[in-house]
Write a protein that binds this DNA or RNA. Structure first.
Lengths: 152, 152
DNA sequence: TGATATCCTACCTCTCCGGTAGGTATTACA
DNA sequence: TGTAATACCTACCGGAGAGGTAGGATATCA
């Protein structure tokens, strides 16, 4: 297993916010309703949504009839942003990380003459994960509303 | 972080076995020498190499002048095999796994009518990881021997 | 027979995941 | 103006698993 439930639950929250926004645009969604809908612990979701808010992915309205809203339309929210906000920097393995200049560095490469032979592998894996997360937007995950949601 | 040091160390062991095999084919490599070379704890490597052996990726010779050998040429060993032997089945997230029939299943999809909207994302991520690991063989990671390894 | 290895089982410590608890600040509405 | 609803914040906590350590049993060569 590679991502924790933080990513799992957090993505579900984003999907649900997107779905609700398409049903009733502009109306804040209380977190309790999402917890109920997805059968997830509310108190724990509060921690996760706090990360999403600090990352600028959702906005909030406090008080009665408050709740959360997507900060941007779903087409403009990539899964890379969401997952990174929840899990931190994406690195397939502890020793690999991306420097500020974009170059992938291996913490075990102290001596520049002694290159890490496994770096190629983890760099490839990381690149594919990041690419997939960047190319998938929230809008792709939001289920299309079933026609005739109300009874006939 | 997604893979543990089991994968990190284990891949290093495989690379070192491949490198030594190209230098002295057929000669078993004692684990103590790998631990020394890569500055990794020997007792811990023993656990990891046991997994590699049970997966049929390395063979062993006990006793004095014993050690480990690659079970196959490096071109025929994929990183998917290595990582899976060390970490278990590759799943980006707990609720996603691949059934025996090859279909990706989500453990939260109890009700067949209620499809998991996030399944698409994790399926994509998983597929890319597996593909990358399958396409990278051990031979690609083994450093080419420096010409003139002996002193002039 | 001893040195060198693999091999096996048990244990141990620490971190962090997943979750709970309780309180405060803010807002809508009656 | 009060009260319910909601976000927001900090602290805590139990269990599991990561990352080892320890000690011995077994096999092999010189």
């Amino acid at each position: 297993m590679m991502f924790s439930t933080k990513a799992e639950y957090g993505v579900r929250v984003m999907v649900e916010l997107g779905r609700r926004a398409s049903e009733a645009p502009g109306a804040p969604v209380p977190l309790a309703e999402i917890a109920e809908h997805d059968q997830l612990p509310l108190a724990y979701l509060e921690h996760l949504v706090a990360r999403l808010r600090r990352a600028g992915l959702v906005t909030s309205r406090r008080g009665a009839h408050g709740g959360y809203l997507l900060a941007r339309p779903p087409q403009q929210i990539t899964m890379a942003e969401v997952v990174e906000a929840l899990e931190g920097a994406i690195a397939p393995i502890e020793c690999i990380s991306e420097g500020s200049d974009g170059r992938v560095v291996c913490s075990r490469e102290t001596d520049p003459s002694h290159v890490c032979p496994t770096k190629l592998l983890w760099t490839r894996v990381r690149a594919q994960i990041v690419r997939t997360l960047q190319e998938t937007t929230l809008s792709e995950l939001i289920p299309v509303p079933t026609t005739a949601p109300v009874a006939v």
